[in-house]
Design a protein around this nucleic acid. Structure first.
Length: 578
RNA sequence: UACCCCGUGGUGUAACGGUAACACUAGAGAUUCUGGUUCUCUCAUUCUUGGUUCGAAUCCAAGCGGGGUAACCA
C-alpha cells in the first residue's frame, strides 16, 4: 500500500464479533457513519501484553473502518497514578505501531465539565450527597442476594445537595466523610445500580491538576462522560465491566452529553505461564522478584521489547488469538511462535558458542587462518554473505560432543564425522579428559581439505552440522538465557493460603558470562536482533550493553526436536525401570 | 444460594439454518550445510437432553459446567 505498511496492523484473518457489530452500525448509518474508538489506560502501571490486545483492537478497528482512535489517560484516581506511567504508556503504544495524532486526552482535562454534569444531575434530583461512611454504605448496599436500603440522606433537597457538593469540592470536609451518589435503585439486582458513588473526597495531589480538586469522579461516572465528550462511538472494554453497562447507559442518558457512545465488552487476554494483573506485576517489581517493569521476563510491553520481541510479532499474535466473549487462556507457544515467524525472516544469523569446548584440528596447519563464506540469512538472499575466520583451534558447543553417543545423536563423538557449518567435515579422533573431574577438556579431530565450504566432492553424507567459532578470533560476551517467569501453566492457581509468588520459576534467568561469539557480534547495535544458529533469537540488551561489551538476551529459542526426542526417550527409560 | 455473561478438536478462534474450517500443539513422513525453516498426512458423536425444521454448532426450553459482580479501584 505505502512505504509505511510495516507499521500498519496485520490484516484480520477473520471478522470477529466487534468487527461485525461496527460493520452493522456503519451499514445502518449509525453515528453518522463514523467509527471512533479509544484506548483508555489508567496511568498506574506499565502496559502489558493484555493491553496490547486492547490497543490492537481499538486502533485496528479505527484503521479497518476508516475511523479514529484516541489515546486517553483515565486518571481519576490520583493516589495511584504517576507521570512515569503516562510516559511509558505513550512510548509503548507508539512502539507497537499506532498513532493518536492530536487526540491525546486525559480524563482530568474534563474534570470541570464532569463536575458540571454532577450539578445537573443534582438539579434534576438524580444525585445526592450522602454522609454515610464506607462501612455504613456497604451495609446499606445489601448483598448479592438481599436488596439494599435507601440511605437516610437520599431525600435531601436540591439546594442542600448543591451546597454540600460545592463545599465538598472546596475541601471543607474530611476525606471519606461524604460522597455524591446517583439516585437509582437500592433494590436493583445489579449491585452497580444501588446508588453508585459518583464523586469521593480525596485530598491527594493529582499529577496534572495538582491540588485544584479535593473531589474526584469515579470510573463509572467519568468514563461514559469522557467517551461522549470525545464523541466516541464504540467504547470497548473487558468483560468485568459488563455489569457496569446499565450504569454506563444511565450516566450517558441522564447527562446532557453531545454523543451516545455504546459500551462493548470482550474477554481479556490470559496467557499460560504469565500473570497479567497490574497489581501483581507491581508486586513483582516492588518485591524485587524482577529487576523492574522492563525486566525481559516481564509480560509488559517494555519487557517484551527489551527481551527482543518485535512490534510486528506482537500484532500478529493479537490478530491470531482473535476477539471473543469467552474467557480463555492462550498457550504461550502461540506468542513465541509469532516471534519466531517474524525473526526467521528478518534476523541475520551468526555463530555463537554458549558453552565452549575446545577442538584441535590435528592435521590443520597451526599458522594458517582462512576466511570462509557464510550466508547472513538463508531465508533471505538479499541479506548477503560474510566472512568467518577458521583456524586450527576452535570452540564447539559442549552439548555437541558425547563420549559415548547413542546412534541417533548426529553430532560429534569418537570416530564420528560431522560438518562444521560453512567450513569442513571433521572426524573425531580422540579426546582429553580431566582425570580428577571426568570432564572432557579437549576434542581431537582431523579435517578433510576437500570439503572446504561444507560440501564433499565424493558425495559423502554426514548427519549433523554443528556451529563453531575460531578460538583465536572469538569474542567473549555475556548472554542471558530466559525461561518463563513462572514455572506453572496457571500461576494464579495456588493452594490454600498460598500466593502466586510460590509459582515463580527459580530458573527463569541463566547468565552465561563467557560465551564465545563470532567476532562481528562484538559491535552489534543495542536493540539489534540476531539468530544464533541452532540456539535461538537474541537481542542486544539496550540497558546493560556497553560499546565493545554487548549483552545478549535470548528472546526465544529455536524449536529443538532433538531435545524433545531425548526427553521422550528418558521418559520411556524411566518407565521401563519402574 | 441473586443477577449478568459464556460453553465448537489438546489450545485459541471460524462456520451467520444446508452437513464442522483455520492457526498453534501433538504424532507420522519428506526436504534441508541450522535436529531450524519449508512441505505432506493424522487427530471433533460442536456440554447434555428435549423441541422447532426437509435440514440445527447455529433457533427455543431445561439441565449441567465455567466466569463475572457486594472499593469512596479501574
Amino acid at each position: 500500500m505505502n512505504d509505511r505498511s510495516d507499521t500498519n496492523a496485520v490484516p484480520p484473518v477473520a471478522l470477529h464479533f466487534i468487527d461485525e457489530r461496527v460493520q452493522a452500525d456503519l451499514a445502518a448509518g449509525r453515528y453518522g457513519g463514523r467509527v471512533h474508538t479509544r484506548f483508555p489506560p489508567e496511568p498506574n502501571g506499565y502496559l502489558h501484553i493484555g493491553h496490547a490486545k486492547s490497543i490492537c483492537l481499538n486502533f485496528g478497528l479505527a484503521q479497518r473502518f476508516g475511523g479514529l482512535c484516541n489515546l486517553r489517560f483515565d486518571d481519576t484516581n490520583p493516589t495511584t497514578e504517576e507521570v512515569e506511567y503516562v510516559e511509558s504508556i505513550q512510548r509503548d503504544v507508539r512502539w507497537l505501531g499506532f498513532e493518536w495524532g492530536e487526540r491525546l486526552y486525559y480524563a482530568s482535562d474534563f474534570f470541570e465539565r464532569i463536575y458540571g454534569f454532577a450539578e445537573e444531575l443534582v438539579r434534576h434530583g438524580k444525585a445526592y450527597v450522602c454522609d454515610l461512611g464506607p462501612d455504613d454504605m456497604s451495609r446499606y448496599r445489601g448483598s448479592l442476594t438481599a436488596p439494599g436500603t435507601d440511605s437516610p440522606y437520599r431525600a435531601r433537597s436540591v439546594a442542600e445537595n448543591l451546597d454540600l457538593l460545592e463545599r465538598m469540592r472546596r475541601g471543607e470536609f474530611p476525606e471519606g466523610s461524604r460522597t455524591l451518589r446517583a439516585k437509582i435503585d437500592m433494590a436493583s439486582p445489579n449491585m452497580n445500580l444501588r446508588d453508585p458513588v459518583l464523586y469521593r473526597i480525596l485530598k491527594a495531589a493529582h499529577h496534572r491538576t495538582g491540588t485544584a480538586w479535593s473531589i474526584y469522579p469515579t470510573y463509572d461516572y467519568a468514563h461514559p462522560l469522557c467517551d461522549a465528550l470525545e464523541s466516541i462511538t464504540h467504547s470497548i472494554c473487558t468483560l468485568e465491566f459488563e455489569n457496569h453497562r446499565p450504569l454506563y447507559d444511565w450516566v450517558r442518558d441522564n447527562c446532557s452529553v453531545p454523543a451516545r457512545p455504546e459500551q462493548i465488552e470482550f474477554a481479556r487476554l490470559n496467557v499460560t505461564y504469565m500473570v497479567l494483573s497490574k497489581r501483581k506485576l507491581l508486586r513483582l517489581v516492588n518485591e524485587r522478584r524482577v529487576l523492574g517493569w522492563d525486566d525481559p521476563r516481564m509480560p509488559t510491553i517494555s519487557g517484551l521489547r527489551r527481551r527482543g520481541y518485535t512490534a510486528e510479532a506482537l500484532r500478529t499474535f493479537c490478530e491470531r488469538i482473535g476477539v471473543a466473549r469467552f474467557t480463555s487462556t492462550v498457550d504461550i507457544v502461540q506468542l513465541e511462535n509469532a516471534l519466531r515467524d517474524d525473526l526467521n525472516k528478518r534476523a541475520p544469523r551468526a555463530m555463537a558458542v554458549l558453552r565452549p569446548l575446545e577442538v584441535l584440528i590435528e592435521n590443520y596447519p597451526s599458522d594458517t587462518v582462512e576466511e570462509l563464506t557464510a550466508r547472513n540469512n538463508p531465508e533471505d538472499p538479499a541479506a548477503g554473505e560474510r566472512k568467518v575466520k577458521f583456524s586450527k583451534r576452535l570452540f564447539i558447543e559442549r552439548d555437541d560432543f558425547r563420549e559415548d553417543p547413542p546412534k541417533d545423536f548426529y553430532r560429534l563423538g569418537p570416530g564420528r564425522e560431522v560438518r562444521l557449518r560453512y567450513a569442513y567435515y571433521v572426524k573425531c579422533t580422540g579426546f582429553d579428559k580431566d582425570p580428577a573431574t571426568g570432564e572432557v577438556t579437549r576434542v581431537h579431530c582431523t579435517y578433510d581439505p576437500a570439503t572446504r565450504g561444507g560440501d564433499s566432492p565424493d558425495g559423502r553424507k554426514v548427519k549433523g552440522t554443528i556451529h563453531w567459532v575460531s578460538a583465536e578470533h572469538a569474542q567473549r560476551a555475556e548472554v542471558r538465557l530466559y525461561d518463563h517467569l513462572f514455572g506453572t501453566e496457571f500461576p494464579e492457581e495456588v493452594g490454600e493460603g498460598q500466593d502466586f509468588m510460590v509459582n515463580l520459576n527459580p530458573k527463569s534467568l541463566e547468565v552465561v558470562r563467557d560465551a564465545a561469539l563470532e567476532a562481528m557480534l562484538i559491535d552489534a547495535e543495542p536493540g539489534s536482533r540476531w539468530q544464533f544458529e541452532r540456539h535461538g533469537y537474541f537481542c542486544v540488551d539496550v540497558v546493560d550493553s556497553r560499546p565493545g561489551a554487548p549483552v545478549f538476551n535470548r528472546a526465544v529459542s529455536l524449536k529443538d526436536s532433538w531435545a524433545k526426542l531425548e526427553k521422550k526417550q528418558h521418559a520411556k527409560g524411566a518407565e521401563r525401570t519402574r
